[in-house]
Structure formats: C-alpha cells, structure tokens
C-alpha cells in the first residue's frame, strides 16, 4: 500500500441514478483528501452531498471516474472486499444516530467492534463524554445520541470519518458542542463532513461548496 500524502482521491467522479433523466447527481468531481485533514462540504438540498459521501465511503460505485482509497483503486473490489475495508477503516456518522433501540449504549457502540474489547469500548465512550452506558437510546438527548454514534464510528480505530449532516437534529448550541468534541478527538483522523448548515463551515480546514453535483473549492 502506498503511503502517500492523500488518503482519499476522487478522480473525475460522476454519478447518474437510473431513474434520473440525464441529470447527474455528481458531475466530474475531483477531490484529494489529505491525511489528518478536516474537510467540510456545504450545499443545498439535492446538491449531491449524500451521493458524494456514499461514493467516497465505498458504499456505492461511481458511474464514471475512480475512487482511490489509501493508494488503492477501489473499482475492481468485490462487495465483500469493500465491506471489509469499510469495517476496518471508515466510520460513518449520519443525521440520525441509528442507535438500535433494543441495545444499551455500550452494546450499540460494541456492535461493529472487530476485536470485542469491553474496556476499550468503555474508554472510547468516556472520551466522548458518555458514562451511563446502561442507558437505552430513548433515554438520552439527541446530542448524546450523536456522541454515541461518534463513539461507535471510532470503535475500530478507522483512518477516515465521514459525516452526513451530523448536526441536523441538533440546536445550534448542541451542534457546536458536537463539532468541538469531534475536533478535539480528531487527532490524526481524516474527517469529511457534508452539510447544508453554514455553521459547520467555520470548523473546516478545507472548505468546499457543492451545487447540482458540481464541487467548488472556497479559498
């Protein structure tokens, strides 16, 4: 594996959904993500943010162009190989925490854990500021839910965290708390956030705007 400057490279990535009449969800997007960077991509509804994140996160293949993850071209990977890569190296945080209602916080965080280690999971939960680990999702606030989702995304020590509207359910003060936490925990992690909330732009090391599938860098 090449240990280059960029952990993730999108090269002329386009995506067309079958049902769409000609219009592209992503139009020839090229994006190089540096190791350890925090990238924010802002765009209105329907701009292609989620499509971009799913493509960059190896969940979906682009119609055209290539996605290079850690120096490795991913087009030819089988679904199983993609899944494995995601499991080890990519953590997702979405607008909804998607915590399973019948698992407590610790169980939720340990769900994707590859090397089941309760102490390790507890440490990660502590780092995000959660200590009542026997609580169930319905007993906690949205902010705490997102913190648990962050802990769950971190549990396999991934190199990349991808966030789709991570503060969508939070009021602006909670949103700031969550973003501060993410920034503090980031360390040498690479983080990409897509959102339509301008508030998040202030956290960006690299800021982009996306509209109608076209990406533009904000200098």
């Amino acid at each position: 594996m090449r240990d280059g400057e960029f952990i993730l490279e999108l090269k002329d990535v386009s995506r067309t959904y079958h049902r769409q009449s000609g219009k592209q969800a992503l139009e020839k997007i090229s994006l190089n993500i540096k190791r350890g960077s925090l990238t924010v991509i802002i765009g209105p509804s329907g701009a292609g943010k989620s499509t971009l994140l799913k493509t960059a996160g190896l969940l979906e293949k682009p119609t055209q162009g290539s996605v290079v993850f850690k120096g490795k071209e991913t087009r030819e990977l089988s679904p199983g190989e993609r899944a494995k890569l995601i499991h080890r190296d990519i953590g997702f945080i979405l607008e909804d925490s998607n915590l399973l209602p019948y698992l407590n916080l610790l169980e939720n965080v340990m769900l994707p854990m590859i090397n089941s280690d309760t102490e390790n999971a507890k440490d990660i939960l502590k780092n995000v500021g959660l200590t009542e680990l026997n609580k169930f999702p319905e007993e906690i606030s949205y902010l705490e839910e997102q913190k648990a989702a962050l802990a769950r995304a971190l549990v396999n020590k991934p190199s990349v965290i991808l966030c789709d509207e991570p503060t969508g359910k939070l009021d602006s003060s909670s949103a700031r708390k969550f973003m501060d936490l993410l920034k503090n925990l980031k360390d040498n992690l690479t983080v990409i956030i897509v959102s339509n909330n301008d508030l998040l732009a202030s956290y960006a090391e690299n800021l982009f705007y996306i509209k109608d599938g076209v990406l533009k860098e904000k200098k």
Binding site: L59, A83, K84, I86, H87, F92, L94, N98
Partner: peptide, 16 residues
C-alpha cells in the same frame, strides 16, 4: 430496513 442500512455502513457484508 434502517437496521440493515446501519449494518451496511458499519461494513458488514450482505452475507453476514
């Protein structure tokens, strides 16, 4: 469906 979607973004394969 929500649960299955969650499993997928966690990196579990369809077989699993």
């Amino acid at each position: 469906r929500r649960e299955v979607g969650l499993f997928k973004i966690m990196g579990f394969s369809e077989g699993q």
